[in-house]
């Protein structure tokens, strides 16, 4: 399992600080990153991926500084699963998943039989093998997100960084994606994902990192999600309820008012 650590990580954009002194360490499991718009979630994920260079501090992947590692080497350990987006080119699902073999394939030779087999295996594992020949742009948002996860698996990465993976998915696909995430986590894959839904964090994350204005406010188990911490970062009144079997749900006070009256 890859370990990823942020040490005194700072980032400024046009002299305005976006992140300050972030200190985090990840070792597998599912980590949810919560924070309001503009809190620095996406910036943090991009810094962890090495897509942005820190203004100060460093990111360590398996104990080595990220900026000193080759792009391919990084890609073999850690994968980026972007938000679903409209693509201009209608690549086949299989072609998109095959891109995950880029860090392994040599520069000049075409993808090998083995590369294709790896891609098919990942698609099969995620139940999208039947979509292999379909255009990536014509499958549903949920299937597209699964294709991107399959691509990440094909990279050989153990740690997946996802930027609001449920964004743009319908309700059913959001839940199916979270289920998938949970299964993969049990198989040993690590996830760091940002989300706007505390409920999603409560349902799959074993660790929650809350950030606001570029600083880590809370870092701990899912218990970090409390009415106080949610009020603190979002400025709204939210209640938490334990329903049967220790399942915790998050309900905005807005919905409780009519009953209170």
């Amino acid at each position: 399992m890859a370990t990823l650590a942020a040490r005194k990580l700072c980032f400024s954009y046009q002299h305005k600080p976006v992140l300050a002194e972030v200190e985090l360490e990840f070792q597998g499991g599912v980590t949810a990153l919560l924070g309001p718009n503009g809190s620095g979630k996406t910036t943090l994920l991009k810094l962890l991926l090495g897509l942005l260079k820190p203004s100060k501090g460093e990111v360590l992947l398996d104990g080595r500084e990220l900026s000193g590692m080759g792009h391919r080497e990084v890609a073999q350990r850690m994968a980026y699963v972007p938000q679903i987006h409209r693509e201009a080119f209608a690549y086949k699902v299989e072609d998109v998943v095959l891109m995950g073999r880029m860090p392994h394939a040599s520069f000049f030779s075409p993808y090998s039989r083995r590369d294709l087999a790896e891609a098919h295996e990942a698609m099969d594992r995620l139940g999208i093998l039947h979509l292999a020949q379909r255009p990536y742009t014509q499958v549903s948002g949920g299937e597209r997100q699964l294709a991107l996860i399959a691509r990440a698996m094909t990279q050989g990465a153990q740690l997946f960084i996802m930027d609001e993976p449920t964004n743009g998915l319908d309700y059913g696909n959001q839940i199916r994606l979270l289920e998938r995430l949970q299964t993969l986590a049990q198989d040993g894959f690590g996830f760091i994902f940002s989300t706007h839904h505390p409920d999603h964090a409560l349902s799959v994350a074993d660790r929650v990192v809350m950030i606001n204005q570029g600083r880590v406010l809370r870092d701990g188990s899912a218990d970090a999600i409390s009415p106080q911490s949610l009020e603190e970062i979002y400025g709204v009144d939210v209640r938490l309820f334990d329903v049967q079997g220790g399942v915790r749900v998050c309900v905005p006070a807005l919905r409780l008012k009519p009953i209170a009256c």
Partner: peptide, 22 residues
Amino acid sequence: LLSRQLNALSMGDEEARSLGVH
């Protein structure tokens, strides 16, 4: 020879970079 890299690049700079492309 650069066609595979071009495929990755057309998915966006950040995605391409995370796939190991310079």
